[in-house]
Simulated assay, not measured.
Amino acid sequence: MSDSPVLVLGARGKTGRRVVARLDRLGHPFRAASRSGGTRFDFADRDTWGPALDGAGAVYLVPMSEAVPAATVEEFLAAATRAGVRRVVLLSARGAGGAADPYQEPVELALRATGLEWTILRAAWFAQNFGEDLFLEPILSGELALPAGEGREAFVDAEDIADVATAALVQDGHAGEIYELSGPEPVSFRTAVEMISEVTGRPVRYTALETSRFTAALTAQGVPPEAADLAAELLGRIRDGAGEHVGDGVRRALGRDPRSFADYVKTAAAAGTWGN
């Protein structure tokens, strides 16, 4: 890969900021893009696309947290091609059995239809959801209540995602690859909070909640009904066994095993994630 800058979208997000840190350590030029600060980028503001893409050789594409329509991503990819971008690494999400997530599949297809060097990262649920936003407040309050039953998910460490993404962005040999990124074993939410409780000494319990009570609680907090329904649907997939599958993407991309959820908990606890 040339020394052209890597455009990192979502540079303040869980994986984006980790990719930026790795590129910085490597001494590889990059552009940290977000809605504010650094390089300004917003999928909804096409005037930001050109300056962000100018001179970039590769793009770390993170549309999933933005709920960006596939047509918009397709338009962006066309703009990237015109700007001379050669390589795109897409952070996607996995569906049942490691297949494409139905919500992300149109974006994957749009990327694969380009003439760019593409790599797709189909990630499991992030281990960091327990310590950085999604589940943090419930854990600090002492109860995580979700409609996931006793289903298990092979939670992936965002550090592993960033390692694979960085390798695919700056090294050859990853073009045309679809990497399913997960942890080494599936873990239930009950077991996950028990691990956190044991390591931190903080009492935390998991409650398997009915879907209707979960969505009602979210909407009462001001979450739009469609977003509450989507969250319930995704957690329901875990309840029904969709998260059990263990992917081999970290091993194929990096030649090592992925980090375990237990390793994540120890590292996060040592950093004071849960206030211990």
Rank of each mutant, 00 (worst) to 15 (best):
R213L: 12
L230V: 12
P225S: 14
R239N: 01
Q221I: 02
F214R: 13
V223H: 01
V223P: 00
L230G: 04
A232I: 06
G222P: 02
L235M: 13
R237I: 00
G222N: 05
I238L: 06
A220S: 14
R239M: 01
P225T: 13
A220P: 05
L230W: 14
A216P: 04
I238V: 15
T211A: 15
L218T: 00
L230F: 14
L218H: 00
A231D: 03
E226K: 07
D240F: 01
L230Y: 14
S212K: 14
P225I: 09
L235N: 05
A216T: 10
T215G: 10
L218E: 03
T219K: 05
A228W: 05
A228Y: 05
G222K: 04
R237D: 05
G222A: 06
L235A: 08
T219E: 13
A232T: 08
T215A: 12
A220F: 08
G222S: 07
D229Y: 03
G241Q: 00
T211N: 09
T219C: 08
F214T: 14
T215N: 10
G236L: 04
E210A: 15
L218N: 03
G241T: 04
L234M: 15
E226L: 11
A216C: 05
R213T: 11
V223I: 12
T211D: 14
D229V: 11
T215R: 12
L234V: 11
F214P: 10
P225H: 09
Q221A: 13
Q221S: 12
A220N: 08
L218V: 03
R237C: 01
G222E: 01
A231I: 06
R237Q: 08
A227C: 01
V223Q: 01
L218Q: 06
P224N: 08
A228M: 06
G241S: 01
L235P: 04
E233F: 14
P224E: 07
R239D: 00
P225Y: 07
T215D: 12
T219V: 15
A216M: 05
T211C: 09
P224H: 08
A217H: 13
F214Q: 13
A227E: 08
V223K: 01
A216L: 07
E210N: 09
R237P: 00
L234P: 02
G241A: 02
P224T: 07
Q221D: 10
T211M: 13
A228Q: 07
P225M: 09
D240C: 02
